[in-house]
């Protein structure tokens, strides 16, 4: 634990949980070896990071009440994932505009779907819906005029 650095800052983007969380804790390894090892704490598709963020929030709620929601990022995993998702969303929007087809994205956790929805709001000619339940919930991208 002495090998990590943790910084707290205000949320700035949708991927930080902007509008949802009060503070973002950023965890970095103090050297390259620790940075590599922190990959374990991110886990497959960020699942361990999500578990850690969840438990931190339960602990904070237990101690200070429910109104201090914190976000967590490790080695900028969320930030990098957000960039990937935004770029993908823009590509998909262009394709839907061009073809008029409905495109269904792979299942994603809520925080990632939110990034897609918010990105699509800035894209003309498309709209989004979520379909499916739980772990299989997916974003559908449709032409803004119909498509149902």
């Amino acid at each position: 634990m002495t090998d990590t650095e943790i910084a707290a800052r205000e949320p700035e983007t949708a991927g930080d949980g902007f509008g949802l969380v009060e503070q973002v804790l950023e965890v970095y390894g103090a050297n390259e070896e620790v940075s590599d090892e922190l990959g374990l704490l991110i886990g497959r598709r960020g699942e361990t990071l999500a578990a850690l963020q969840y438990i931190i929030n339960v602990l904070v709620a237990t101690k200070y009440g429910n109104d201090h929601v914190v976000g967590l990022d490790i080695e900028q995993y969320r930030k990098r994932r957000e960039q990937t998702l935004i770029e993908m969303a823009r590509r998909i929007a262009a394709e839907v505009r061009e073809t008029g087809d409905v495109i269904t994205l792979e299942p994603m956790p809520p925080a990632e779907r939110r990034i897609i929805h918010l990105t699509m709001e800035t894209e003309a000619g498309v709209r989004t819906e979520s379909v499916g339940q739980g772990e299989n919930r997916q974003v559908e991208v449709l032409p803004a005029d119909g498509g149902d």
Binding site: L40, L41, G43, T48, A51, L52, I55, V58
Partner: peptide, 24 residues
Amino acid sequence: GRIIGREGRIANAIRSLVYVAATR
């Protein structure tokens, strides 16, 4: 209930973190 959580969510989060410690 405080350690298991709704639908076992807290227990599962604990298991995820223990999995990391165990892997190491």
